[in-house]
Write a protein that binds this DNA or RNA. Structure first.
Lengths: 184, 184
DNA sequence: ATGATTATTTAACATATGTAAAATGCTCCC
DNA sequence: GGGAGCATTTTACATATGTTAAATAATCAT
């Protein structure tokens, strides 16, 4: 995890130690919930191994909002930053290993370690940029374009994630996705 | 502007002064470009009066990515945070008054004033949360639901912004929007 | 005020995606 | 290895949205 952090913003050993103190390692088998729907997000996870997804129910249907792979942070930011309960949950798609960072204690560290505040600021800024690009893609590309772009960017997605989750992530039904795939 | 900042995170007079030093006031008539397409974003704007939109061209068609109203920050974050040129521009929709903040000099202030870093971290976190909610809305609501939600949230949009911009913001054509409006 | 320009709506048709249900294929557990 | 339960595809039909073009309506400049 700290190797990854260093690529974003290098922090001192003391700061690393402070983060380690509020972190715990977690292993979770495939399909298990990491965070249930309805709870306020108070934990930031770092994916060591496996894939996780943020999901919720729209009219009773399971919808995937986003996926995160190895070496990425995952959190329900709309709850984390607003303090409100989230209608979303986090579930691991494969057997996974993660680091759980206590968010409130992390935010407290910001006062003592401006370098930690800066690190996480940069991490979330990068996430923000990704989200802007994702919005653009979903707002003005067809489902087929989005599917092709996803496969081009991360072909392993197809091997590791069930199509039903990919379909809802792309904003379409599984039937539509099947049709798009059949065109090839 | 500083009144607005205080609602996010109160900063010292010295910090306010430092921000004021790197800011300039701007007036711009309706439909003028604030920032052209293709340039790297190096300015963060605060809207004092009027409405601005971030837009780009998709297959030759003018597309609105977002609107910002009074008392809001507007910037092309995907360029600001990545340092890459933006395919997007910023245009004012009405006669507008703004404050332009030099982004590079602002980021330099972060070292001297952690409170300024925190202020802008919080501002962009709040924007990030809005964007997550926007993505959800566009991914899993019909165009009609999105239009109704927009009107419910900010009815003045209809008076102040041409429908063609609202249509592309909602991710649909103007014809579709007309049909939705006609249903009432 | 008048005409030119721009914005919005309407119409007719094409296409993409949704819905429901059935068929097929795959996985995992005993 | 067989069967139960998922996952994926296919089919048929319904609906929403796109495209193009023309008709109205509103706005702007002289």
């Amino acid at each position: 995890m700290f190797e990854y952090f260093d690529t974003v913003h290098r922090i001192s050993p003391a700061a690393q130690h402070a983060i380690a103190e509020i972190s715990t390692e977690i292993s979770l088998p495939k399909n298990k919930d990491l965070q249930p729907i309805g709870h306020t997000c108070k934990t930031i996870y770092f994916m060591v191994k496996g894939i996780a997804r943020i999901y919720y129910y729209k009219d009773g249907v399971d919808v995937t909002e986003s996926f995160e792979f190895e070496n990425a942070i995952i959190a329900r930011v709309e709850s984390l930053f607003s303090g409100r309960p989230s209608r979303k949950g986090i579930q691991v798609v494969e057997d996974a290993e993660l680091v759980a960072i206590d968010a409130n204690r992390l935010f407290q560290l910001y006062d003592k370690f401006p370098e930690i505040e800066r690190l996480f600021r940069k991490i979330f800024e990068a996430d923000y940029v990704n989200l802007v690009n994702r919005l653009e893609s979903i707002q003005f590309h067809t489902a087929e374009e989005r599917y092709n772009a996803l496969v081009a960017e991360s072909p392993e997605v197809l091997q590791r994630i069930p199509l039903k989750h990919i379909a809802s992530y792309l904003g379409i039904t599984q039937v539509s996705l099947s049709r798009i795939r059949a065109k090839k």
